[in-house]
Design a protein around this nucleic acid. Sequence first.
DNA 1: CAGTGGTCTAGACCACTAC
DNA 2: TAGTGGTCTAGACCACTGA
Lengths: 260, 260
Amino acid sequence: MHIDPTDSRSPSRQIADDLRAQITAGVLAPGDQLPSERQLVETYGTAAQTARKAISLLKSDGLAEGERGRGVFVKRPKPMVRVGSDRYARHLRTGGQAPFQAEVESMGLEWRQEILELAEVPAPDWVAQWFEIPAGSRVFVRRRRTWIETMPTQLADSYYELDTVAGTRLLEEHTGPGGGYARLEEAGFKLTRFREELETAMPTPSEVKALQLRPGVPVVHLHRIAFSTKEGDAERPVEVFEAVMAGDSHKFAYEFPAPE
Amino acid sequence: MHIDPTDSRSPSRQIADDLRAQITAGVLAPGDQLPSERQLVETYGTAAQTARKAISLLKSDGLAEGERGRGVFVKRPKPMVRVGSDRYARHLRTGGQAPFQAEVESMGLEWRQEILELAEVPAPDWVAQWFEIPAGSRVFVRRRRTWIETMPTQLADSYYELDTVAGTRLLEEHTGPGGGYARLEEAGFKLTRFREELETAMPTPSEVKALQLRPGVPVVHLHRIAFSTKEGDAERPVEVFEAVMAGDSHKFAYEFPAPE
DNA sequence: CAGTGGTCTAGACCACTAC
DNA sequence: TAGTGGTCTAGACCACTGA
């Protein structure tokens, strides 16, 4: 294996593609150690920085991860938590469990939620739009971080209008059995419909920190709007929700009927 | 603005965070040119490579993009194409348009599809599983690339069992009005249900090339299974579909009723 | 202690753009 | 032609791991 100077790809790209080929071919299996920077310098005959750049390309592609003092290793696929329309049906039938909790526990994984903030705040623009209230109106937010086993996997913010949560356990740290939706139903909100919107992006530094993300892991932003009716009124949003999740450990599934 | 050597963040990280703050604060607007590498060297007093690394961090975070010989610019947000359960309902009511086509044209954008391959191939494992056939069985695949205006935005592969497509226009380049689903219905398949599964990841080099992706843009893999019945038989998959889309120009929306 | 990843410095060349 | 991004070379130091 040498660098081909006539190749249009740069030397670092050639090395990276070479290693990538070994990974996809199975020569290097998940968890295996990649050749060290010094080894790459010797086998390809480049400068150290060039070998480093090749490894850096693989890391930003999410194929490898470095551990200081130990080496660079082929990334192991992460267990995927499934998120989507399936779980709501299951949840509300079985009762007693919040949707995410039911999903994770059905996989036999341990689960924990950490409250980051319970507060009145000015509504972000997109939240105000869903509630059809003036931008900056005060709303109540529950900010929390979800852990699966020992890994933080989700940052979740639930927004409510103030009169919705007044006098309910949504103001408290522990919402009780069945989660927040159960409390809303007790308060007379009949849930009718959910809308979920998904986007993907690279994480901000603060997301990297809060979710302990490794380089090359994109993030998914999930917006959910829970619609309800109360005392026969027209349907309107009762909860607006945003979650940020590590892209390498979540997948999303939705089922819907073909019309007619 | 100087580098703080007591700061735990590396100098390149400090510069990157500094520029990021200017972007989020609006001091640097989308389309604006970032300070050149040489300017950064002067203002922060670091080596050129350090300034370069700071810019490289911003690019891999999807915040900036470089243009050779011109400069590095704050990335402009891309127009988002909405994909999800909404469009099927609309499509099958209006008729005559394939779902993706209807979605894009409703935004007033021009649209084009390029056939990459029409062939019998061994079924990938996940496709064979949905069809409940032995892995490697031969199936028919339609591979195509979708363009919106002058940008490639989607790589899409539709898989069918051989007897499903025999004698239909699904074997040809142009499937005719209403798209592939209309042809399936003509052939007696009554569509009953769709399942869509989403994952995100960083693109492979071949995806980068085919979709002309810039650094720092993650990609979304969409799997769709179209279920149908035929002549009163039990429901089973009739089409298995995979699409790869640029994450910065697609968002996904699903609506589903609260059970009971 | 040797080996490893991570970062920085200093200097060079090339390809490309805009004037 | 001057300025820009992109890549490479050569050499250095530090933090960390594991024997």
